[in-house]
Design a protein around this nucleic acid. Structure first.
Lengths: 204, 204
DNA sequence: CATAGTCTGGACTGACCGGTCCATTCCAGG
DNA sequence: CCTGGAATGGACCGGTCAGTCCAGACTATG
């Protein structure tokens, strides 16, 4: 990281990250070169190394963080307010829509596979993202419990972990096959089971 | 593909694929070079191009097919005989064990990201793998129905799709975080829900 | 307006790596 | 045992690309 950045510097740095993210989504991390990023962001090589002294890896890591932040942001405000079945449904719709739009581009997953194994930082970004994601889901389940819509015996930890896995699995299948069907099935089934289990308990 | 392969030729070709698969699992597809594969398999560059005339991509594709075949094989015989709850549990154990052993190496996923977007063949391999995988799960659910352990109204298609997504999600989380917890939670929850829904129906 | 530090341009380099080529050895069939 | 095709070894090539370097422009601050 550079020591001193002027306002102009900050905006250039941000422009590089956003442009790099865009070109990464289009071309894929395996193919992308610094030249591609330079062309897209209208910067020179010396600028790239000025703002990311450690080179390509540091830049890719910054892009990974940028993309990771977007993942949860794109699910708001629904993800942060899962206190009714209707809210869960809205969240489900938001997830479907977001990934339907994104299609088979996997900015974060691809980034992870590229930088991942080598750089510990990349793994940390993804781990933190998943942790916060699951925590939001767990919070939502607890909110349902608090509202009396789910029995207290529901295993929040296992439910939220399974829910997160369902989403991840649906997404990865979308990205490999191009079909959103599995994501939809996984989400609908998981929510139906969550609700079904509740009704079963409530009635019994 | 070469025209004529002697017995020796076949064994060398197989040796290359297996060695390449091993070194790919260790180093990751983004880093691996032909030199690495040559060193591991004790072959020369001319051999690589003799057996895979189209070069690195063709070799990686062959490795992808090799790995894809292993995925389902490793779940047998359980995956092919899901006709009782005990059988499903044995399958679940086999999956957990297989991926626990594999850890955070993702031979197939990584391969897909490398060759995937560019080569249509790679996507076809993964699509076919997922299709057969889900079909086996659907078959298992139908077997439970036939045995009277699940009501006929169970949506086989959605259940099997969600089940596949659960496994995939658990695996991808294992590979990014190194923790097998989510895979376990996803499988256990999915099976519990499948069974729970059944009991609910049977009792009601 | 002086100047020091930031910002930008772009030529250059050096290493790496996929792929080619030719020479040599091996081996199966006649 | 001859011979043609398969199998192998390894030198060499050419392109690519991350990273370096220096020169010059811009700008904030005193």
């Amino acid at each position: 990281m550079s020591r001193q950045l002027t306002a102009k510097g900050h905006s250039t740095r941000a422009r590089i990250i956003e442009g790099a993210a865009a070109v990464l989504r289009e071309l894929g991390v395996a193919v992308v070169t610094l030249e591609d990023i330079m062309a897209r962001t209208r910067t020179s090589k010396s600028q790239l190394f000025h703002y990311f002294p450690a080179g390509k890896d540091e830049l890719l890591l910054a892009v990974a963080q940028f993309e990771a932040d977007r993942v949860l942001d794109d699910q708001q405000p629904h993800l942060g307010r899962l206190d009714s079945w209707a809210a869960w449904q809205r969240w489900r719709d938001a997830v479907i829509e977001r990934y339907e739009k994104q299609g088979d581009q996997c900015p974060l997953g691809a980034l992870f596979f590229q930088v991942g194994r080598s750089t510990p930082g990349a793994r940390a970004i993804v781990v933190e993202l998943l942790r916060r994601w699951q925590e939001s889901l767990a919070e939502g389940i607890r909110a349902l419990q608090a509202a009396g819509r789910l029995p207290a015996e529901v295993n929040v930890e296992q439910r939220s972990a399974a829910l997160l896995a369902a989403v991840q699995g649906g997404v990865i299948i979308l990205q490999t096959t191009g079909e959103i069907h599995h994501l939809r099935a996984a989400l609908d089934q998981a929510l139906a089971d969550l609700r079904g289990g509740a009704e079963q308990r409530v009635r019994g």
